[in-house]
Every structure is written in C-alpha cells, then in structure tokens.
Nucleic acid binder design. Structure first.
Lengths: 141, 141
DNA sequence: CTAATCCTTCCACCAACTGTAAGGTCAATG
DNA sequence: CATTGACCTTACAGTTGGTGGAAGGATTAG
C-alpha cells in the first residue's frame, strides 16, 4: 500500500503519516521506486495512533501505549496508569476551562454590547480597583 | 521600573514580558544602560494582558482587547463580540474534553490494572472488530 | 506523448512561550 | 579597588503536533 491508501484507510493526512515515520512511530518498508510500502501491520498501528490521539493522548503516551500493545508480557496496570494520568490531565483542563467559562459568561452577560464604550469586560481586565499597579507593592515598602 | 519589578508586580515571567515587547504588545522606554524602563502604563497593560491570557484569550484577541481598551470611542459590542467568540471556543473545547473524558473513564473502569496483559483500553484502541484495516475498503473494490 | 495524479525530500511556519549561552551593569562587601 | 552576586541584555534553539509549499521524480490514463 502507498501512503495515499493508508491515509484514506486510517483517516490520517499523508503529511501526518510521514511525520509519524519521522519520529519513529511507524517504520514502513520502501519500494524500489522510493515510495513507502505500508504493511497491514503499519496500517493497524496508524489506526491505533489515530484513535489514541483522538482521545487526547500525547505523542509520547501513544508511543508507550503502542509499545505496551506489542508487548505480550505487558501488565494492564501500566496501560491503566498512563490512561489514568491522562484522565487527570483532562480533569484539570476541564476544571480550568469551566472556571474561564464561568467568569467569561458573567462578564458577557453584564455587557450591553451596544455602541457605547462602557464595558464591564474591559473593566474587569483592567481591574483598576486592585493595588497590583501601585508602586507601594514593590519590595522594601 | 526594571523588568524584574514589573515581573513581580504583574506576575508575568520576565521572559514573557520581553516576548510581549517583541510582538509589539508593550513598548517600554529604555534607560541609558540599555535596560527596559517601564512606566505605570506599561505595568497596567501587562497586568491587563495577564488577566486576559488567564481567561484563555489568544494573543491576537489580547491585542484587539488592548486596542479597544485604549480607544475611548469603542463600542462595547466589539468587546462583547470578541468575548462571545471566545466563549464559543471554550464551549466547543469543553464538549470535546467531556467526550474524551467519558470514553476514557469507561475504559479505565473496565481495566483490571493488574499484572495480566488483557486490557480493554488497548483493545479499544486496536479496535480489531472494525474493518478499517481490511484492504477490501480500498477504492475499486 | 502528455497531462494528471501520486510520490519524494526539505524547509519554513503556527502559538505562546521557555531554556540556555554569552556577556554587560550595578550595588555591596572585603 | 577587586570581586561577588544579582540583575540586565541579546540571540538562538527547543517545545507540541503537525501543516503548507516548493521543486522534482514516478506512475497511470488517454
């Protein structure tokens, strides 16, 4: 199979597949004409990678998961460990985004959104009521 | 004020402040010794940027928000527009992460996490029950 | 034979910084 | 006065996970 075929079958752009070869995630053979020659196993790996990436695993996580997948002597605890850390990262990100959303939604609601300049969103960003910008906060005072 | 002072006061790393100058978000003066000389207004801008970034606004959004902030003739509708688009992006990201979380949590729950190799997480990623890897999916068949 | 489509490599670019190296400045101390 | 340490400067490389484009070779259809 050429790269176009695996691209269509795996759903990954050809560029991405070349990149994955570059960083050592797949090692397709080469035909006499210099074209990459993908085996079923390569396609299988790429599909695996595509699914792992779509779950948000980092490339390095994907590399580890692929290694574990190919290791018949793996312990499922290792896989679960990687997945659990990733879940924690997702949860932290979710909390961060939810907090942003909360703040932003309040501000948007409070903003008239008309031709006048007064804007609670800018007022909050400027936060002129804090002492952050007072030189008295400099060390030594 | 030197960069160390504004760094402490704004909470932004000195590196980041230099970067913001590089891309034109702030224009501090220079002292005779070549050191950056920040005014109150520069500090104010940096604090503004720090808060906008912490709400997840992109640098380009920050640039626009800063311009609007300094434009006494702005329309709050413009600010609200930027904020609303950002809120939409956050909502899309939240939905994406929530979906990842759902899938991942199910898989993790199903995984024994012991010394044995059997693992529903890897099984799902491998997805051997799909026909994705069957050559019969190639065009022309 | 030619045009279209595929494939190749290589280099540059995106966001938003962060790290590191090599060196200049300043205030305090011995 | 020399030196130490904290501060400042620039410039360049690296991060993540690709994407875009140029220049050119291979293959296939008509």
């Amino acid at each position: 199979m050429n790269i176009g075929d695996v691209s269509r079958l795996s759903g990954l752009p050809a560029k991405t597949i070349r990149y994955y070869e570059d960083i050592g995630l797949v090692q397709p053979l080469r035909s006499g004409n210099g074209y990459r020659a993908f085996r079923q196993s390569d396609l299988h790996k790429l599909a695996f990678l595509g699914r792992a990436r779509s779950m948000g695993f980092s490339i390095e996580d994907c590399r580890s998961l692929l290694q574990l997948y190919e290791d018949g002597n793996r312990a499922s605890a290792d896989v679960k460990g990687i997945a659990s850390e990733h879940l924690d990262r997702i949860d932290r990100k979710l909390a961060e985004l939810a907090e942003m959303r909360r703040t932003l939604a309040h501000l948007i609601e409070a903003c008239a959104g008309d031709h006048r300049p007064d804007c609670p969103i800018l007022a909050d960003l400027a936060a002129e009521d804090t002492d952050l910008c007072e030189p008295s906060r400099l060390a030594g005072n």
